[in-house]
Design a protein around this nucleic acid. Structure first.
Length: 938
RNA sequence: ACUCGGGUGGUGGAACUGGUAGACACGCAGGACUUAAAAUCCUGUUCGCAGUAAUGCGAGUGACGGUUCAAUUCCGUUCCCGAGUACCA
């Protein structure tokens, strides 16, 4: 009886389905429930391309851990669903004319079939899909909660906006609740018209609408969030992005900046992941202070983290967009300033970013007055100051800031030195360790101490205050797109009126065309019947991709509830996600948004925890190998290491020709032969590679060396491997174990199918411990020997330790060692093998189930009792000690573990090898570490 | 430029708190079984030198230096690769 994995895997996948093996039970009333464990994979977008071997890496890891936890007696929630709204589906719809709902359904079916082939233990009855009205009903409902809440500053938490209205009605706006930098009394508030009241309230809602500069992407016809823009180009498609003023919805995530930072201390994310989030939030502490302007009533407010350098301010710089630019510019500088503003406008975001080093700017002709020494400070405008950060204006201290220094040099602005020898005159020195000079009341203070002194003085004089700044912006929450959640909002005379929660879901209407509406609005704007209502006009934007994915982990707990997004009893039971596995690409976006939503839902009392993910494990990327022909116009290149091959005499430039799926045709040395090239050309007639006629080698055969590079797997790079093919060829169990065997889950590694045979061989070897191809059943009921028990218990210990610390690659090799040892000692004993199967079940579930049943057990191996490690069995009486001389290993000695230093020394000195090295002299010292090693120092 | 990872055989990688570097696998070489192949099994495989051999000696975890009886592991300097951020005042 041989290991026919195809039959076994198919039959077990069917059995799991019919027996509902993976159905997860919520705790029943009055029952003693098992401890819970929640394992979650990052929400996949069901792309049309299907899965490649890089995707399942994290899924396999989470599946192993889920099964392991189940065996260990936990009630494990391990769901899967689809983030099915979003740009790619719509983009695809635009290109093919198919409705996104149709393509999405089709893609999900493909995805699920692929996942099931790998044998994952998902409870599909809990599947959720963001584009399903029964799901987005609750996304819209949460939006309404955000819309109807504000961030209460004294308690630092979200509260219903009705409480803020009460505050306004009774006390007016206190200093904490400035509106447009001013406050109003209760009498004022009560006299305001409803429209004005709503405008004010909009300024406090956690999800709010305002006109703002947005990242507008013409090619995609939509607005993008900051993290969807990379170097001035869209993350998806790489199209140019420009700034545009539009009415948009925003998430007031900045209010949560402090708690998002603090929360990082309570979760187990990798340091780099935490660091990325911290950088994104970008907290800085300093002061905001006002400068008077010579011959003007206006003031310029600047933000600085270094108020200690106030006496080193040699000029000021405003962002070109700063509102004061026009009013302060002097008559004779007007022309230059206008020319400069024109130049700035002409430059795209892309150019500004790519030419960071270029110094440009223009003097306004105006002067600010230093409040401490009355010095006149010239005011400039320059691109390097960003309108969006701080106050959009800076005080420039060239001796301490390199950008200010370069600017001063470029425009020959005199530089004041306030740090003595610390400043060399050739570059700025940002030190905080210098003692201040030329600095009035701060003279002789250490800079780091002077910071606080300066702020105190600024506050005492009433010209500014201590201020914390965040780099993070409020997140754009609307998209001019079709395939997303419609906003449950109706606009009436400029006032946003929320739809009553009882009317949700507001279903996404059907459209036939996905083109944009008028004035930059989304496709929904074209549906006149849908948008125009008797009481106003519907919001035509839809929510961004991250809306649905910010709370999906809660819906899995209670996926079919029609009355609430998630029953509080269930969220109290399942609680936080214990283990969250996914890629680093979601470091800032998704993780920050879902962390914020969790905090809001917590503040409002809907859930009982304020961090969604307890532990985050980042899977590394599996890179694919891409192969290129390098085209070189030097046919006489002799450098054999260059791997240059094809000579294209028509081409005068060096370029690369990508070889589609090249790895299938290349041998282990990276060589392509004439025969395989012909094969390749037959398979890809459209991309056939023409060899240059001049190219000859060996007279008979043409060898082509390919340039090889590892890069991210993607269909467009022809470097993907499909898991289906590997499951078909070797089986899902082999595929699962091989992906794990490749290396640590967190590490990025190149994909190579070369080693998969070894894993497959291991499973066959395991099978042969139970069944012989000819003899059939070979397992027996004999009692195990001490050695066999030792093998078993060593394995139990190591598998448990490795699984607990997510070291799946070493766990796989532990299994290999165990099977090798059992095969060597011809152990076919059920008592041993059965336990091994239980250990193996998380890793290779199909073969484990099959053999478990073959041994005469009924039910799933997942319900078996996990073997308990018995340390007594591993206790040794002696040890083979390594004996080093001066730290270099020379020999070994088998000694009883009872022996102490003195006895060991005596034996060691007797040793022939030791005597040889001692040459008759006594040793200086003998180091003996019990159960470790011996070192003789000469 | 800054921050965070990482450099170990021909390859993927192992060595968890300093204690026998290279587990496990791939590949390669040789052998057994076979008419032959597949499958399976056995042996060898870090490099160099010596030896028929068992073995011995030397070098060796990017490079240089330090701490230590002992360093892949700790410290300093430096080089390279990857990821993220990027005029944030």
């Amino acid at each position: 009886m041989e290991y026919s994995f195809r039959k076994i895997e198919q039959s077990w996948q069917e059995k799991w389905k019919t027996n509902k093996t993976y159905q997860v039970q919520n705790p029943q009333e009055g029952q003693v429930s098992k401890p819970k464990y929640y394992v979650l994979d990052m929400f996949p977008y069901p792309s049309g391309a299907g899965l490649h071997v890089g995707h399942p890496l994290g899924y396999i890891a989470s599946d192993i851990y889920s099964r392991y936890k189940r065996l260990k007696g936990f009630n494990v929630l391990h769901p899967m669903g689809f983030d099915s709204f979003g740009l790619p589906a719509e983009q695809y719809a635009l290109e093919t004319g198919q409705h996104p709902a149709t393509t999405t359904t089709k893609n999900i079916a493909t995805f699920k079939a692929q996942l099931d082939k790998i044998g994952f233990c998902y409870d599909w009855e809990r599947e959720v899909m963001t584009s399903d009205p029964s799901y987005y009903k609750w996304t819209q409902w949460i939006f309404l909660q955000l819309f109807n809440s504000y961030f209460d500053l004294p308690s630092k938490k979200a509260k219903p906006i009705t409480e803020l209205i009460t505050i306004f009605e009774t006390n007016g706006s206190q200093s904490l609740y400035f509106y447009n930098n001013a406050s109003f009394s209760a009498v004022d508030w009560n006299s305001f018209e409803e429209k004005k009241k709503q405008e004010i309230l909009m300024d406090f809602r956690l999800c709010f609408s305002k006109y703002g500069e947005v990242n507008w992407c013409e090619a995609l016809g939509t607005v993008l969030a900051n993290d969807e823009v990379i170097n001035g180009l869209s993350e998806r498609g790489g199209h140019p992005v420009e700034k545009k003023k539009m009415r948009q919805w925003y998430l007031r995530i900045t209010n949560y900046a402090e708690r998002l930072l603090a929360g990082l201390e309570t979760v187990a994310f990798s340091d780099s992941m935490k660091e990325m989030q911290r950088n994104w939030i970008g907290k800085s502490e300093g002061a905001e202070m006002d400068f008077n302007i010579k011959n003007s009533n206006s003031q310029i407010s600047v933000y600085t983290t270094r108020p200690d350098t106030i006496f080193g301010v040699d000029f000021m710089v405003l962002a070109p967009e700063h509102e004061l630019v026009n009013s302060i510019t002097s008559a004779n500088q007007k022309e230059s300033i206008e020319a400069y503003l024109k130049y700035v406008k002409s430059r795209s975001e892309r150019e500004r970013l790519s030419e960071v080093k270029q110094i440009t700017g223009c003097f306004t002709g105006a002067y600010a007055i230093n409040p401490f020494d009355g010095k006149e400070i010239p005011i400039w405008i320059a691109e390097y100051v960003l309108a969006g950060y701080g106050t959009g204006a800076i005080m420039a201290v060239p001796c301490g800031d390199q950008r200010d220094f370069s600017f001063a040099q470029h425009f020959t602005i005199p530089i004041t030195n306030i740090i003595g020898d610390f400043y060399t005159g050739t570059e700025a020195n940002p030190t905080k360790e210098a003692r201040l000079q030329n600095s009035g009341f701060l003279n002789d203070l250490l800079m780091k101490d002077a910071i606080a002194v300066a702020i105190d003085k600024i506050e005492a004089l009433g010209i500014g205050k201590r201020k914390v700044n965040y780099r993070m912006r409020d997140a754009g929450f609307s998209r001019q797109r079709y395939w997303g959640e419609p906003f449950p909002i109706i606009w009436n005379e400029g006032t946003a009126i929320p739809i009553d929660a009882t009317e949700l879901p507001l279903e996404l209407p059907h459209v036939d065309k996905y083109g944009p509406g008028p004035d930059g609005e989304g496709p929904l704007a074209n549906l006149k019947d849908w948008i125009n209502l008797s009481n106003g006009r519907r919001e035509t934007s839809t929510m961004p991709g991250y809306a649905g994915s910010s709370w999906y982990f809660l819906r899995y707990m209670d996926p079919h509830n029609k009355d609430t997004f998630c029953d509080r009893k269930l969220s109290d039971y399942w609680n936080q996600v214990d283990l969250y596995i996914g890629g680093t690409e979601h470091a800032v976006g998704h993780l920050l948004y879902s962390r914020m939503w969790t905090k809001v839902l917590f503040d409002l009392g809907y859930i009982g925890f304020d961090e969604p993910f307890k532990k985050l494990l980042n899977q590394g990327m599996i890179t694919g190998k891409s192969f290129f022909f390098e085209i070189d116009h030097n046919p006489n290149a002799t450098d054999s290491t260059k791997k240059i091959v094809s000579y294209n005499k028509d081409s005068q430039t060096n370029s690369f020709q990508r070889l589609k799926y090249g790895h299938q045709f290349v041998d282990s040395t990276g060589k392509l032969t004439r025969a395989s090239l012909d094969q390749y050309n037959t398979a890809h007639p459209l991309d056939a590679v023409q060899l240059p006629i001049e190219w000859k080698e060996d007279g008979t055969e043409v060898f082509i060396f390919l340039k090889e590079e590892s890069e991210k797997m993607s269909k467009s790079k022809f470097n993907v491997d499909n898991p289906d093919d590997l499951c078909e060829k070797y089986g899902a169990d082999t595929f699962r174990m091989y992906e794990m065997f490749l290396g640590p889950v967190e590490a990025s590694k190149p994909w190579d199918t070369k080693g998969i045979e070894g894993v497959h061989r291991f499973l066959r070897k395991l099978w042969r411990l139970f069944f012989d191809d000819i003899k059939g059943k070979v397992w027996n009921d004999e009692l195990p020997t001490e050695t066999e028990l030792k093998i078993l218990h060593r394995t139990i210990k190591k598998i448990e330790e490795d699984t607990e610390r997510f070291s799946f690659n070493t766990a796989v090799s532990t299994f290999m060692i165990a099977v090798n040892e059992l095969a060597d000692s011809k152990c076919n004993k059920k008592e041993i093998l059965e336990k091994i199967l239980i250990l193996l079940a998380p890793y290779a579930p199909h073969i484990a189930e099959e053999l478990w049943q073959q041994l005469g057990n009924s039910g799933s191996v997942l319900d078996a009792a996990y073997p308990i490690f018995n340390p007594v069995l591993l206790v040794e009486s002696s040890k083979d000690y390594p004996v080093s001389i001066n730290g270099k290993l020379r020999t070994s000695l088998s000694l009883s573990l009872d022996l102490e230093q003195a006895a060991v020394e005596a034996i060691v000195l007797q040793n022939e090898m030791v005597q040889k090295w001692l040459e008759g002299k006594p040793p200086k010292k003998i180091i003996f570490v019990k159960n470790k090693m011996i070192n003789v120092v000469i």
